[in-house]
Amino acid sequence: MNKVYNNRAWLLVLPMLVLVAFSAIVPLMTVVNYSVQDVLGANARFFTGTEWFETMLNDPALQAAFLRQIIFSLTILAIQVPLGIGIALIMPKRGWQASAVLILITLPLLIPWNVVGSIWQIFTRGDIGLMGWGLRQLGIDYNITRNAGDAWVTIILMDVWHWTPLVAMLCYSGLRSIPEAYYQAARIDRASKWAVFRYIQLPKLTNVLVIAVLLRFMHSFMIYAEPFVLTGGGPGSSTTFLSQSLTTMAVGQQDLGPSAAFSIIYFLVILLVSWVFYTAIMNMQKDKHSQGGA
């Protein structure tokens, strides 16, 4: 769509800008201010320069948390995206069944994140939880508070349970937008199921899939409440992700300077990743438009 060039549009954007700036820019500036100082109290603070950044960049605990975070995010993406597509493909397309399945599937998305943690904490306990109890009955020594491997599997399972619905819903709505004529043409040509998926459904899905990957990546990168409630980051620090390290440092230990420096590094990484994604999306749309015009 050709947009009209008109700078008065800024007036429409202004109220939103004021609100978001109040919530985003003032705190961000404060974080930057904290990061170069050692704030001990209201009137006791010392300028430390880049010292906190140096400490944070070389902190082995944080590097480990960062690595865990990346492994976690990539793992859940690798599971949720194919699984979400699969579920979207087998969801009923019309009638009351479609509505019922839609409502059921969105259910996990609407549960407060700490309640998700509680649900899984209860569900996986060896004494009162169905899953924990069931696995013990099968003779599997399953204990998320003692075994790091179990804790990891459970957190990934929980995240898959919690967020696959979002991917599935996005893909489902992408699939619904394919005109029936495409399928008819494929039927006339006796296309196989795989061919229909590969040449009709998947190309239509790319747009929503990029949104899904972007949303999932950034949410998994700031995951906090669920693992905090479920495992508390343990056993040891085996399931401590970035947000939790940061919150422990900032709220638990009141280390304003280091946690601010850490926040900035964290934010810059997110900024870089989201810029790459955003540019990719925009270029994809641009390519599509230029192809459509040709």
Binding site: V32, N33, Y34, Q37, V39, R45
Partner: peptide, 15 residues
């Protein structure tokens, strides 16, 4: 504004 703990270098940076 005092809670924002401004310093000269960061003020220059944001300016």
């Amino acid at each position: 504004m005092s809670w924002m703990v401004w310093t000269v270098p960061t003020a220059i940076f944001f300016s």
